[in-house]
């Protein structure tokens, strides 16, 4: 399978990249390329120009700073997977990074690309919704911060205009009592989720959940933020009864469709099952 013809340019600086994008409305951004290049090979995308941001310096990092975990957009998934900081303090992200695509793809695929593609089947969107993350988007006017809840405008449509680039992801920094978990039911390694759920919660010293984020992967046209379930669980001790009530709310907002991964009924039931399991796993971690 062979990509169509296109021009290619590899800017050395961010302003240069932004100018190129501004001047070429038909251009596509190439980062890790592991979503874009297969699309090119199937000729599902036929851009005239690829702007390769892969050589931009200073966009690959993982650090805690100013109350945030900051991740540079060009950070590859395997760097997340292998980061001891993330492994020890951000188990939700760590779980997800291990389930994205396969280990070799993760060496090229970037966190920024995964989010900017805004594919509801991708894993990071739900993870970032659960975290209550912020996305830094940079245009010629400089960077701006977008709450993750406003980032997924529609299917494959992020809140990034053509002449902007996603440059950083910010996750609220870990504090004691935080716990998270990502459960993805997939048919095999490398598959998109049949259903996925991301949970991030905080429990107080007396075991009350005072904050929880809950979101679903590949169960709708955009990642699903389970707001009602989150509200129902906030302030509870996450007992079985609390969970039973809340996961039903989560299953209600899911918009699964019958497909080759399973029926609508099966997927809705999976939401209940894996949400329960993910919350329990997150709770164990929060109390650890």
């Amino acid at each position: 399978m062979i990509p169509p013809q296109f021009d290619y340019i590899s800017p050395q600086t961010l302003p240069e990249a932004l100018t190129l994008l501004g001047n070429n409305p038909d251009a596509k951004v190439l980062a890790g390329g592991h979503s874009l290049i297969p699309m090119l090979k199937f000729r599902l995308a036929t851009p005239t120009l690829l702007v390769d941001i892969g050589r931009l310096a200073g966009l690959s990092y993982i650090r805690e700073e100013d109350g945030w975990l900051k991740i540079g957009a060009l950070t590859v998934e395997s760097a997340i997977d292998k980061s001891s900081l993330i492994h020890s303090k951000y188990p939700l992200l760590s779980d997800a990074a291990r389930m994205i695509a396969d280990p070799i793809v993760r060496n090229k695929a970037t966190v920024g690309g995964n989010l900017a593609h805004a594919d509801p089947a991708n894993d990071h969107p739900a993870v970032m919704l659960a975290y209550g993350a912020e996305i830094v988007v940079t245009g010629v006017a400089g960077p701006k911060t977008i709450p993750i809840t406003e980032f997924f405008v529609g299917p494959f449509t992020p809140a990034i205009s053509h002449a902007e680039l996603l440059t950083e992801i910010r996750i609220p920094a870990h504090k004691p009592g935080d716990g998270g978990s990502y459960i993805k039911i997939e048919r095999k390694v490398g598959d998109y989720a049949t259903a996925g759920v991301a949970v991030q919660l905080h429990v107080t010293a007396d075991g009350t959940c005072d904050k929880i984020g809950l979101a679903l992967t590949n169960l709708g046209l955009t990642p699903i933020h389970c707001v009602a379930a989150m509200a129902a669980l906030t302030g509870t001790k996450l007992t079985d009864a609390d969970l039973k009530h809340a996961v039903a709310l989560a299953a209600e907002v899911a918009e699964p469709q019958d497909d080759y991964r399973g029926t609508e009924e099966y997927k809705r039931s999976l939401v209940r099952t894996i949400t329960t399991r993910a919350i329990k796993a997150a709770l164990v971690r929060a109390k650890a």
Binding site: I185, R187, T194, R261, G262, T263, E265, Y266, S269
Partner: peptide
Amino acid sequence: MTPDKVWGLLK
């Protein structure tokens, strides 16, 4: 025997 098929039988 995919998970959805097995689950359907369980159901």
